[in-house]
Simulated assay, not measured.
Amino acid sequence: MVEPSSAGRSGEKWAVRAFDRADTESVVALWTEAGLVRPWNDPKLDIERKLTVQPELFLVVEDDEARSTSERIIGTVMAGYDGHRGWLYYVATARSHRHQGIARSLVREAERLLLDMGCPKVQLMVREGNEGALGFYDDLGYERFSVSNTGRRLIVDA
């Protein structure tokens, strides 16, 4: 477990830690609530794939006082490093815990782990129209780029 890396505005402490398989249902519920799940990406398959490549870069924050197991995970980030640059995916915070610094702590811990691997740069993609997310990354010092993304599915999930 990573040492608690931040405190919320109300003085709460939380620990950023590596994902555990037991977190799967709670993580999928969080991603669904946060609007990150898409019909063409099976979130459970995304988790399984991540666990085969740099699983130590899949981080969560847990709420020890959650009312149910499906609400236990309140923050996530999935990172990766390909030898050229790092990437961040699935950055999410539960609506009930937003604006407390959880996402900031997750991103900073992912950046620290990437830097420890020798990663010189980190990037991420934000869907058009998600101004709240863009503002969050602006505040963290991320630079906006004018690029076009292209992609091609090699394995169809759905």
Rank of each mutant, 00 (worst) to 15 (best):
M1T: 03
E3T: 07
S5L: 06
S5T: 07
S6H: 05
G8E: 02
G11Y: 06
G11M: 09
K13D: 05
K13M: 12
K13V: 15
W14L: 11
W14F: 15
A15G: 13
V16Y: 00
F19C: 06
D20T: 11
A22V: 04
A22S: 15
E25Y: 02
E25H: 02
E25F: 00
S26C: 12
V28T: 11
L30H: 03
L30Y: 05
W31Q: 05
T32G: 08
E33L: 12
E33H: 03
G35C: 13
G35F: 10
L36G: 11
L36A: 13
V37N: 11
V37Q: 14
R38T: 09
P39I: 10
P39M: 09
P43W: 11
D46E: 12
D46T: 07
I47W: 00
I47N: 05
K50H: 15
L51N: 10
L51F: 10
T52E: 14
T52Y: 04
V53A: 13
V53R: 13
Q54H: 06
Q54N: 06
E56G: 06
L59W: 12
L59N: 06
V61E: 10
V61L: 02
E62R: 09
E62Y: 01
D64L: 09
D64M: 09
E65T: 05
A66C: 08
T69N: 06
T69G: 01
E71L: 08
I73D: 01
I74E: 04
G75C: 03
G75F: 04
T76Y: 01
M78F: 11
G80W: 02
Y81Q: 13
Y81M: 07
D82F: 01
R85C: 11
R85T: 05
W87S: 13
W87F: 11
L88K: 08
L88F: 13
L88M: 07
Y89I: 02
Y89P: 00
Y89G: 08
V91E: 10
A92M: 04
A94E: 02
A94Y: 02
S96D: 07
H97S: 09
H97V: 02
R98Y: 14
R98T: 10
R98S: 13
H99N: 04
G101D: 12
G101S: 07
G101W: 08
I102D: 00
I102A: 01
A103H: 12
S105R: 00
E111F: 06
L113M: 10
L113N: 09
L113R: 15
L114I: 03
L115S: 15
M117G: 07
C119S: 12
C119G: 15
K121W: 05
Q123D: 12
Q123P: 01
V126R: 03
V126H: 03
R127A: 11
R127P: 01
R127W: 14
R127Q: 14
G129L: 08
G129K: 09
G129D: 14
N130Q: 07
G132K: 07
A133H: 00
G135H: 15
G135L: 14
F136N: 03
D138K: 01
D138V: 00
D138Y: 02
Y142A: 05
E143R: 05
R144S: 09
S146F: 02
S146R: 11
V147R: 13
S148T: 14
G151S: 13
G151F: 11
R153S: 13
R153K: 08
L154K: 01
V156E: 14
